[in-house]
Design a protein around this nucleic acid. Structure first.
Lengths: 237, 237
DNA sequence: GATGCATGTATGGTCTGACCATATTTGGTC
DNA sequence: GACCAAATATGGTCAGACCATACATGCATC
């Protein structure tokens, strides 16, 4: 995280918390720390690294925002800074902020989601993974009695597609993208009034993946996202 | 953050710096703040939000790690916390950490990069954007006298493909992915000894985009990444 | 008036030390 | 053995101080 400070005109100038980040990163690599392991306490870490506890805390806040650690108060085996793995939630926050800053447009987010979902569906069509989860989600959407409930299972359906790729990174990105456009999804369901079209899309996607027909799956996903986010997703790809 | 539903009895469940984050986010949305605008000073912010300066600083560290603000010391128009937009560097740090934690494998990162680069190349073949930049990068690689110099222009070449998509989000992700696997790129150049194959790939990609031949561009990129990261990138897509 | 240097000042960066809130651990009591 | 109170370790927060930096100001000089 040495580039956090922006311009590195003076390389000798490293803020204390950046040094802490570097040392913690080193330790993760050297000691082979992994998810579930605990970091030393803030006070202990401060003493080891010869910085103040404030600096340690700033570094921990950064790691927490990146979804790498999770802090628990109290005492016992679960207390303290524990290494976790939540790249998805970190990405969600990142996207939300940049959407708010107008650094990114909804169009760009939806297009990216289209890219990932089509790519994942292609993989799914070859591996046949996740079909059961998708079918269950479709059935649950049929039984849904409110837009919110429908969208809840819709999320599960699309998450199943992403997970079928077997790639945790694309899954995490997908999850974050979905989170960033979540509020538009409910709007879409309410606006359409009828979920028949969306469900027809879902069945078409599921069937294409089941039949190993990647081309149809890819096309069906494009149709589906265009239906859900009209005038946003362009004729991308 | 997410656990323990109900019990809104104790307001201390939200940490102070999280409140600061929320308030700053609100202000960005409400005041329409955008890149280049300045936030109030740390001391002033602390007083306005009725928290300590430490809490304000922790919130600012989070925003900085997400590529939303950049802090400059000193005095003047450029000093203080300025809103920026560097989702790329934030993503780079995120990926590097999660790679270190073994949350993500190199394979997953390279596969994701393949996805984005193929998608971008498809767009580029349709729009013809970025061809000049690509050609310049290829020429610069020809003239390079060290692996490091070669890789430097290689980065520019692949960045041009990503930017040709016109999607800042995929560009940022691409930049981050590239940064995460950077060290493997130099290894690859040294290992191959001869950059002729890589350059042939580059020319083939460039020519396909120039000719609007998306299918060839996509295939050439797969070949290229397989050459650079053998046994890592699978026959993905 | 223009120039240049000394001083002022606002800003982030860091540290210290204290206290609070929480949750486990410990140990004593019944 | 069960139960409850105290001790303790941990993160969360705060207040205040000082340093380093870099622009702003103003005076002295030319």
């Amino acid at each position: 995280m040495t580039e956090l400070g922006g311009q590195a005109r003076n390389p000798a100038r490293v803020r204390a918390f950046e040094g802490v980040l570097a040392r913690i990163e080193e330790r993760i690599a050297a000691d082979g720390l992994t998810v579930g392991d605990r970091l030393p306490g803030e006070r202990q870490l401060a003493e080891q690294l010869q910085v103040s506890r404030s600096s340690v805390r700033e570094a921990l806040r950064v790691l927490e925002s990146l979804g790498v650690v999770s802090s628990q108060v109290g005492r016992g085996p679960d207390a303290g800074a524990v290494l976790t793995s939540r790249p998805g939630s970190a990405l969600t926050g990142l996207l939300r902020l940049h959407l708010g800053l107008a650094t990114l447009s909804l169009r760009e987010v939806v297009d990216t989601r289209l890219m990932i979902e089509q790519w994942s569906a292609g993989h799914a069509a070859r591996s046949g993974a996740g079909l059961e989860t998708m079918a269950r989600a479709i059935a649950a959407m049929d039984a849904a009695r409110s837009p919110e409930e429908f969208v809840e299972h819709d999320v599960a359906f699309h998450a199943a597609i992403a997970e079928a790729s077997g790639n945790r990174l694309t899954s995490a990105i997908m999850q974050a993208l979905r989170g960033a456009v979540q509020r538009f999804a409910i709007d879409a369901v309410v606006r359409l009034g009828d979920t028949g079209g969306l469900q027809a899309d879902h069945r078409r996607i599921h069937d294409a993946i089941r039949d190993g027909d990647a081309a149809t799956a890819v096309e069906a996903i494009a149709v589906h996202l265009e239906r859900a986010y009209p005038s946003t997703a362009g004729p991308a790809s």
